[in-house]
Design a binder for these strands. Structure first.
Lengths: 134, 134
DNA sequence: ATCTAACCTTCTTTTTACAGGAAGGTTAGG
DNA sequence: CCTAACCTTCCTGTAAAAAGAAGGTTAGAT
């Protein structure tokens, strides 16, 4: 059984984060010491690591909660896991499209800005007038 | 002079958002009616629209505050505006790279998942073991 | 004149996923 | 026995609003 800082280190999370996950009931410690310290078992650390990776894949806490229940369920249907993952991919694709548009617009604006100390700036002008770029 | 809902509509923002911008001192209404209603002038609406567009370009509120002061300043040096914009572009590029990596990893995982009711799922397996996806 | 719907106000709470810090108890080593 | 490094709970703060409660105002229709 590991105290919180060992558990955090082994799961590559911060102590604050691990304590937070305990508070919201995502990963509760296996037990407590006589002094009230959280004690984590190996299986808890595996769950924390699982969540850490899923979070890095930008799954939300609630999605992690769903994935974790599938992870803990021996009877888990992979269809459900695949569905959640495909949803996440679609979400990322949408965000990618938006960001690319945004970047291209800003590039265009910056490309037309002489960047000296003259007071007329096409970036400001565009924002002020709401003209469509391009 | 426009009441808040007219101002919001004309700037393509919500009433809540306009009131919020007034609260944080970003765009204060030109005046108040006898009953205490916020009253916005044309120039206020131009500023609100300016901020709305900048926000859609993912400038933070604080960056908007900076841009607005440049916008309001006849002596504004466009170099400063260009610098902020280029910074924003670099930031978006970083985020794009991260998101593409992430999506490719998830695609790989989903591609290897049979997606039926069998309990062995490579997505779960990957998250559980922390194996690197290539 | 009154009714009612649609406004408006301020204030408080909620959201996401923690981070930071205060005040105080515990433990391990020298 | 001292001290440093742990640990605890509780409170506040973050970004940028959204949502809702409780109540005042206004404009048009009856």
């Amino acid at each position: 059984m590991y105290k919180i800082s060992d558990a955090a280190r082994r799961a590559a999370l911060t102590v604050k984060t691990v304590r937070y996950y305990a508070d919201i009931g995502l990963v509760k410690p296996a037990g407590r010491s006589a002094a009230g310290y959280r004690l984590y078992a190996e299986s808890d650390i595996a769950k924390l690591g699982f969540i850490g990776r899923a979070r890095r894949y930008s799954f939300s806490i609630e999605q992690c909660r769903d994935l974790l229940s599938l992870y803990e369920d021996d009877q888990r249907p992979s269809a459900e896991v695949k569905r959640i993952t495909l949803e996440k991919i679609a979400e990322i694709d949408r965000k990618l499209g938006e960001l690319q548009e945004l970047r291209d617009e800003l590039r265009h604006l910056a490309g037309n800005c002489h960047g000296d100390s003259r007071p007329d700036c096409p970036i400001i002008g565009n924002l002020a007038s709401g003209l469509t770029v391009q």
